[in-house]
């Protein structure tokens, strides 16, 4: 019975995430448009775009290899598995034992490598440029993320995401400076990993300033739809991860019934909406930075995470 309930929660969670992904992107875009005084497209617009793209016949470059065709699927599958591991409305889902934070980072690397290889497949200048920059940024984002994971591992005693979320919710950890610093570091990593302002502009059409979009220039039809959907999924994943670790309040505990799930779902939707609003406000308020300032931005995140860990050592070593 417990297994069935965990399985049901898992399936519901995956469905929720698949539904939430286009909405998160759509709502953020809509909010940004409103903040800038425009009417903005409907929050459902990403869904419509993808449906349209799916129906179109993809055009591949003459020298495109099988990588161009396979990479969108591989990247999406890795993202889908990763997002299935991040708890949303309930804890103790069927895949929770798999949900290791290091594995999560690995799966996101799979998606990133797939995207970079697809960008280099045709041998165009923009694809190579985007791939090189994307992989280079990861060299700074990854250690910052791992140090945040170290903070959680010290506080919760494990790197299992579900257990970390449980510890954060009812471990009585209190408000800690380390956690605040780790949260800032993780936000910076999330911004960089999702190619949002100020690291990259998700809406740009100016080739020289883009990183993420530069790798998708040769994709069309279903491949483009898959890439777009994957990037929406990744944004949802990071927001859900931030919620699960830093704001786990209201989430239904493991083994609880559908009523708690509904409460958890409502709480999650509320938190997600607030986070989308915060993202939209932040993106409207800041400007995109030069590409070679990004290492400084992520390096600062890395140092903050290191500081968080060091402060944690101090407070654990006090006795």
């Amino acid at each position: 019975m417990a297994l069935l309930s965990a399985l049901a929660a898992q399936l519901l969670h995956i469905t929720l995430m698949l539904l939430a992904a286009p909405l998160v992107v759509g709502v953020t875009r809509w909010l940004k448009a409103r903040l800038m005084g425009r009417r903005g497209a409907s929050p459902l617009q990403p869904l419509r775009d993808w449906a349209k793209l799916l129906r179109k016949r993809p055009v591949l470059a003459e020298n495109a290899s099988v990588i161009s065709e396979a990479a969108p699927y591989a990247g999406f599958a890795a993202c889908l598995l990763a997002i299935a591991l991040v708890p949303s409305f309930a804890q103790g889902m069927a895949l929770a034992p798999l949900g290791d934070l290091v594995l999560l980072a690995g799966l996101l690397t799979v998606a990133r490598v797939a995207l970079a290889l697809a960008g280099m497949d045709v041998g165009t200048a923009f694809g190579g440029l985007g791939a090189a920059r994307e992989m280079s940024f990861a060299a700074f984002a990854e250690p910052a993320l791992l140090l945040c994971v170290l903070t959680f591992a010290i506080l919760a005693g494990t790197t299992n995401l579900d257990a970390v979320a449980v510890a954060m919710r009812d471990g009585g950890l209190g408000l800690r400076v380390s956690l605040a610093l780790a949260a800032v570091a993780m936000l910076a990593v999330a911004v960089a990993e999702n190619a949002r302002i100020p690291v990259d502009n998700p809406a740009t059409h100016l080739e020289l300033t883009m990183v993420h979009e530069a790798m998708l220039l040769e994709s069309s039809g279903r491949h483009l739809a898959l890439w777009e959907a994957q990037s929406a999924l990744r944004l949802t994943l990071w927001l859900a991860l931030l919620l699960a670790v830093f704001l786990p309040f209201g989430t239904a505990p493991a083994g609880s019934g559908p009523l708690a799930w509904v409460a958890g779902l409502l709480a999650w939707l509320l938190k997600m909406g607030a986070l989308c609003l915060a993202l939209a406000v932040f993106e409207s308020a800041v400007a995109k930075m030069r590409v070679f300032r990004v290492p400084e931005f992520l390096g600062a995140a890395l140092l903050l995470a290191l500081l968080a860990v060091a402060l944690l050592f101090v407070s654990t070593g006090l006795a």
């Binding site: 103790g92 010290i154 506080l155 919760a156 005693g157 494990t158 299992n160 257990a163 449980v166 510890a167 009812d170 471990g171 009585g172 950890l173 505990p253 493991a254 083994g255």
Partner: peptide, 14 residues
């Protein structure tokens, strides 16, 4: 019943 994870916070804090 909320399952507490082994090696989790309570023991660490103690």
């Amino acid at each position: 019943m909320r399952p507490r994870h082994a090696g989790g916070v309570p023991s660490a804090r103690c």
